[in-house]
Nucleic acid binder design. Structure first.
Ligand code: SF4
Ligand code: SF4
Lengths: 156, 156
DNA sequence: CGAAACCGGACCAGAAAAGTCCTGAAAAGA
DNA sequence: TCTTTTCAGGACTTTTCTGGTCCGGTTTCG
């Protein structure tokens, strides 16, 4: 679990197709639906969300379609997810002035904020551009270093 | 979004109380419910899950209760979340032989597996023991290093 | 025995998520 | 101009999951 929604998942798949296409080329909803096999109405819905979030530009009318608002290397996974399903935060307290009924006597609360930062940093470090590459650029990402960053404070 | 469920959240809060208590001391469901202000039936439900997952031991009968099955330093956040809401995986494909209707022509698929590993590594690095400390031990965790681990492959 | 506690699972109401559909408005081209 | 394409904006339905409750049964202690 801890899943992204299907909508988000689809949205990211769609975005990769823009990254793959020639820069500036417009892709229509119908076209995307055919390529990705995602149900057409869903594609339309998601693209609209992406436009409103500012990740895509749209051009209406015949021969219209959608295109990336920014180059693929400037688009982080964190932004994509945030656009498609709201800001990333693992607990409801970490985000806003809570509303959590417990809150008092909740020890982990303070730490959740930190954990969120780690997750967000991880997602922010992945760009659409890297998402497009089959794997190697991503495959070598240094898990050891990531772990070291987490364990550092315990060492000294 | 990308939230853990409330059940998971509560479960972790409960676990912290065990970490705080004297080692070997048994806490009853009722007692926990009072301390945490979590609805009692919920507490009971969650504790049962935790026992079945092997994170807690239980002792029935009068004067019975629950206790940690392992020391707090050997219990990672990853395990807690997995126990409470299933294995951590951000996409449905990353985990098992999918069932995802798209799959073909899905570029990001291969990369999601890596991203999952990063998230898992991050969650695995946080122990219940650290979760209990008010903040400082966690507050200094090296975000810079985490980012470095992610960006490493792009540098060389 | 009887009270205290866990065990197992059924159950429900409400909230999201997934997916569909319809009416309109712009743009391009015949 | 008029038609076609394609996006914009919602409303809507269906399905699934969550949060939360409840109960009958079993173990253990006093
Ligand atoms: S205050 Fe504690 S219980 Fe409430 S949402 Fe935050 S971490 Fe969870
Ligand atoms: S195969 Fe692609 S679309 Fe399907 S779950 Fe995996 S990432 Fe998402």
């Amino acid at each position: 679990m801890l899943r992204i929604t299907k909508q988000t998942d689809y949205g990211i798949v769609l975005l990769t197709h823009f990254g793959l296409a020639d820069e500036g080329q417009l892709l229509s909803a119908k076209e995307l639906a055919e390529r990705t096999r995602i149900p057409a109405p869903m594609v339309a819905k998601i693209l609209k969300i992406l436009v409103r979030a500012g990740l895509l530009d749209s051009q209406r009318g015949a021969a219209g379609g959608y295109g990336l608002a920014r180059p693929a290397r400037d688009l982080s996974l964190l932004e994509m997810i945030a656009a498609l399903e709201g800001p990333v935060s693992m607990t409801e307290c970490a985000e806003m002035g809570s509303g959590c009924p417990i809150e008092a006597g909740c020890r982990p609360r303070v730490n959740w904020k930190l954990i969120n930062q780690v997750v967000q940093a991880a997602l922010e470090g992945i760009t659409l551009e890297r998402m497009i590459t089959p794997a190697p650029a991503c495959a070598t990402l240094d898990l050891g270093l990531v772990r070291a960053g987490l364990e550092a404070p315990q060492r000294t």
